[in-house]
Amino acid sequence: MTALNRYYWPTKYESRKTFINQNVKCVFISYQNKDKTEAKKIADYLISAGINVYFDEYDGDLKSSNQSSNPNNVTESLCKGINNSSHMLVVVSPSTIISKWVPFEIGYGYDKTDLSVLCLKGIPKGGLPEYIRTAKIIRDLWDLKLKLRNMIDSNNTPLLETKLSNYETNLNPLRGIMDNLINDIY
């Protein structure tokens, strides 16, 4: 089965119990709007590796709620996205600290999802806001590969390994936005 943005998935779960019982895996991408380009690259990378995501750029309900400045509908759309996700990946950059929605998404999804924080290139070790320091921190491409390997069903491991095996090469689409462990060591 091909991975996709879960917004397009035909089944939207209203109940987390149903979602969990069906062992559905999906990553909610949380980010500050200034980091949309990087967040989209991350979402596309996960999809290409066979992992479903919820990326709000494709959520028409959320877009119309934002355009009409309707915070109740924005909140409802975000909650549905989180409820349909098993994991949350918070994209952190210097602009994350000014986000109005990232703290809400983390708070709502904290005990509903497996929470991880993906640091964009150059985030210093002490530079993370306190409210996300308790999550698993992904600082480089190697950490991301390990996280994805642990997340997916073992039946899909060969697909993941094939898609992510060259994480250290110049061809990796996340190379310019994340640190690379091998280059950072040598």
Score class of each variant (00 low, 15 high):
55 F>Q: 03
90 V>M: 00
125 K>D: 15
144 L>A: 03
173 P>Q: 15
176 G>H: 09
92 V>C: 04
155 N>M: 10
55 F>A: 07
72 N>R: 10
167 Y>S: 04
61 D>A: 13
93 S>W: 00
49 A>E: 01
42 I>A: 08
128 L>F: 12
162 T>G: 06
131 Y>R: 07
26 C>G: 03
163 K>S: 08
10 P>T: 12
95 S>M: 08
21 N>E: 15
40 K>M: 12
141 L>Q: 09
20 I>D: 14
33 N>P: 02
69 S>A: 12
113 T>H: 02
114 D>Q: 09
129 P>C: 06
54 Y>T: 09
72 N>M: 10
81 G>K: 01
4 L>T: 10
181 L>M: 09
124 P>V: 13
41 K>H: 11
129 P>R: 03
146 L>A: 13
169 T>Q: 11
150 N>Q: 11
167 Y>H: 10
132 I>C: 10
7 Y>N: 08
120 L>H: 04
73 N>Y: 12
6 R>M: 15
184 D>Q: 11
29 I>M: 02
104 F>I: 04
111 D>T: 15
134 T>N: 12
135 A>R: 05
65 S>A: 15
175 R>I: 14
122 G>W: 15
63 K>C: 06
93 S>P: 00
79 C>A: 05
59 D>W: 01
13 Y>L: 00
152 I>D: 10
126 G>A: 14
29 I>G: 01
16 R>W: 11
